[in-house]
Amino acid sequence: MPEKFEEIVSIISQEKIAEGIYDMWLGTEEIAAHAKAGQFVSVYCNDGTKLLPRPISICEVNKEEKAIRLVYRVAGGGTAEFSQMKAGETLRVLGPLGNGFTLGEKSAFLIGGGIGIPPMLELAKELNCEKQIVVGYRNDELFLVDELKQYGEVIVATEDGSVGTKGNVLDAIRENGLKADVIYACGPTPMLRALKQYAAENDIECWISMEERMACGIGACLACVCKSKEKDHHTNVNNKRICKEGPVFRAEEVEL
């Protein structure tokens, strides 16, 4: 049975939820039914000069409505094109892709930095355990905070100190004396690196979602690798494909 689907999906709604951040629900045939937290989709541009699909994390899944939600930042031409689209228009999407998070029952930190926050929403929904959701933003342009609050305690950090702890997600964890047995994280590489170290020092399990430039998105082209501690079964070298074996890895498995 195939697990990945290329579909023309229709935009159910699109809304700007913070400066440069857009929130889009897509109606799918099969993708929603097969999607889980931590997976992503490849979104193709309509502009034919832009050939490569844009990888975007699945922020939320609504299986009843067969819908998936993407929350994304306008970073360049492709995401700018998506942000101009309206309800009723269509996009070509491939997914769900990647492995997704491995769910457990231990008390968990869900940590998102910036545009790494969206996948934490579906994860918070799917995880059935004690959750502390720590999210870091640049400034007071917050997004998804109220929705995350439905699923656990939310702790906010901002770089400029305008909301919550001034600093990053680790500053917020330390300032509030928070503790948990497992970390699930997505965000910029320096944040992931710091969390990997924090997890090692405190001897806690740590899962991180990684990012790399992609071409095929399905494991064929070897564009998107990261260095791994062990020899990977597929590549037979110390490289793992982020689009296939990832994007979620045990922090100690990969180099950052």
Partner: peptide, 28 residues
Amino acid sequence: VPWPGNPTPRVAEVYGGMLNAVGLQNPG
């Protein structure tokens, strides 16, 4: 023998095409 290939980023999109420098990573 297995080749590890080049460091990342290995691909970049350009107008009407792309650049790649995968560096022939292969399992041997």
